[in-house]
Structures are given as structure tokens and as C-alpha cells.
Simulated scan of single mutants.
Amino acid sequence: MFSLETTSTTTADNIITDRMNLHHYLLREMHGYLVHPSIPTDNPNLRVADVGTGTGIWLTDLARQLPSTVSLDGLDISSEAAPPKEWLPKNMTLRRFDLMSEVPEDLTGVYDIVHIRLFAFVLKNDHMKTAMDNLLKLLKPGNYIQWSEPDILSWRVRTTTPDKKTEALTNLMTISQPRDERLKPTWIARLTDDFREHGLSSIDADFKDPSLEIIMPLHECNLLIHEFLARKAQSTEWAEWIKKILPEVLRETREGAAWDFTRVVVVGQKPL
């Protein structure tokens, strides 16, 4: 765990990048797939978009499962977290894309699969209509969107035995949530409803709780988010409070307490 006080911005951002890659493999282990089993992938000329691609790890992993004739497009507002293009699969490209802005004409209606995940700390509740409208503009009629998120409001503390201390872990979440809207998104619980309201069919929602062996690594990924939010916060008082409580949070973690969240993958098909 890095220190807010002593770690440089560059090092801290590298740790966040490492976190995204680790988180990807933990989610793949948890759900058991990259593309939901209800989505057909047998077309050798598929065109796949990964919105908010970050490090590109979902697409680079997917490239090993699909033919090299498939086109893989990583769309993000920045490609700074991604590797150099020479280290990406030959059939993968990166492109600047802002989900909240107008969809470029050459990206309208061209994708067979649109994948998006981990926007819980990006989208606010009133962003969802624009986000859904733009995601559907990317899709060909009759094709599929897959959206994966942690349900932040489902959080609870899991312990190895009932006597473990959880006060610091509980306080960090309950005090942080009112200070930052990104820590209390209600739109995630409504994803399936949003899919229906936008006319999607063949909707499938896969709710999963982590198995015991990955609760701890997922929890440690989540702790980094609080350090990152504090580092970016304008309120130095809040950042100082997080710095003071984190040692006790880490003690509780090492002794057998961790946050636990339900995670969901929602799939839908765009009408013909």
C-alpha cells in the first residue's frame, strides 16, 4: 500500500494501472468468462469495442480467444494507461472516445459487441441516459452490449471469524460515501431496467459474490481507490483523515476483515 504523503504522482498512477490489470484477472476468475456465454462470438469478422479500455487488458486477453481476423477497438478518453501499440495484438487499435460526447459518424452502428465496465466512479446517476444512448449508437442492429460493474451500495464487511474488528473499515466507507457521489451510485442497481427502457432484448443479468479465495485481493484493489480519491481530493482535511485511518484499516485487513461487493454483468441485444 503506497503512502499518500511520500509517493510521487507518477509512481501512484503506475500502481493504479497495476491495480486495473490485477482487477481484470480477478473479475475473469470470478465470472468465468470475458464475453458472456449468451453473446455469439463465432463470426470470424467480429468487430468489438471496449469502451473505457484503460490499459487495454480486456481486449488483449480476448485476443487470445478469438481469431486474428476479429477487429478489436479500445475506446477511451486517454490512451496513457495502455502499452505502446507495438506491444498490442496486431488486430487491436486504440482510439480517443468520450462516452458523454457525440459518437463519431465512422463509429456509428459498426460494432457486433460493445463492452463496458467499471464506470461506477465515472458516471453519475444523471449521466446514464446519454451514456446508454451513445453505447447503443456504436452497435449494429441485432447485436450485443455487455456492461459489468460492482454494486457499490451492496458493500458489507466480511470477516474470517465473528470476533474480528471492523470499525475502521466500516468508518472509511460510511464517512467517504457522503463526501463523494461516485461512492454511492444508484444507477448500477438499475442497469437491467435501463437496458429495458432503451429497448434492448435478450437481457441477462449475472450477479456474483466473490469466492473466499479472491475476497482479499479484490478488497486490496478497492483500498487503492480510496487512496487515489483522497490524493485527488481538493479537501486536504479529508485526505489527512484517510491517511490517519488507513493504518487501522490495514490492521483489520491483515487480521481477517475485508469489504465485499456483489458484482453484476448485464447483457442485452439491440433491436433489429
Rank of each mutant, 00 (worst) to 15 (best):
122 V>T: 12
63 A>M: 08
220 E>M: 14
76 D>S: 10
3 S>G: 05
272 L>K: 15
30 M>D: 05
155 W>I: 07
233 A>Y: 05
237 E>G: 12
21 N>E: 12
35 V>I: 02
134 N>L: 07
259 W>I: 00
195 F>R: 10
257 A>Q: 03
234 Q>I: 04
167 E>R: 09
76 D>G: 02
58 W>D: 02
211 S>K: 01
7 T>K: 08
77 I>P: 09
223 L>I: 09
83 P>F: 07
44 P>M: 10
231 R>A: 14
231 R>W: 10
96 R>K: 07
71 S>W: 05
71 S>L: 13
255 E>R: 10
176 S>Q: 03
1 M>G: 04
194 D>K: 15
123 L>P: 04
31 H>R: 07
226 H>D: 09
222 N>C: 15
41 T>K: 05
217 P>M: 04
210 P>M: 04
62 L>A: 08
120 A>Q: 09
58 W>L: 15
255 E>K: 11
262 T>E: 12
210 P>D: 00
169 L>D: 05
143 N>L: 06
206 D>I: 04
29 E>R: 04
234 Q>N: 14
186 T>D: 07
237 E>P: 00
128 M>I: 00
233 A>K: 09
133 D>H: 14
53 T>N: 05
266 V>N: 04
127 H>A: 07
130 T>L: 15
34 L>R: 04
25 Y>R: 14
194 D>F: 15
10 T>D: 11
43 N>I: 05
50 D>F: 00
31 H>K: 13
62 L>N: 02
217 P>A: 11
81 A>V: 06
66 L>Q: 02
256 G>L: 13
168 A>S: 13
65 Q>W: 12
39 I>Q: 02
119 F>C: 09
270 K>E: 09
87 W>F: 05
88 L>G: 03
201 S>C: 15
248 E>H: 07
116 I>G: 01
236 T>E: 12
149 E>C: 07
141 P>D: 07
240 E>T: 11
121 F>E: 14
167 E>G: 10
221 C>N: 10
216 M>I: 05
268 G>L: 12
262 T>G: 01
140 K>F: 11
37 P>I: 00
99 L>R: 00
194 D>T: 06
231 R>G: 02
27 L>F: 01
47 R>W: 09
208 K>D: 03
58 W>M: 11
188 I>W: 04
162 P>D: 12
38 S>V: 00
201 S>I: 15
188 I>A: 03
165 K>C: 11
246 L>R: 06
257 A>C: 01
269 Q>D: 03
169 L>E: 01
223 L>N: 06
197 E>S: 15
201 S>R: 14
44 P>A: 11
202 S>A: 00
54 G>C: 14
17 T>E: 13
14 N>A: 10
268 G>R: 01
187 W>P: 00
5 E>L: 13
124 K>V: 12
228 F>M: 15
178 P>M: 11
129 K>H: 13
254 R>C: 01
224 L>H: 08
45 N>A: 14
242 I>E: 05
242 I>M: 09
195 F>Y: 05
200 L>K: 03
243 K>R: 13
146 Q>D: 03
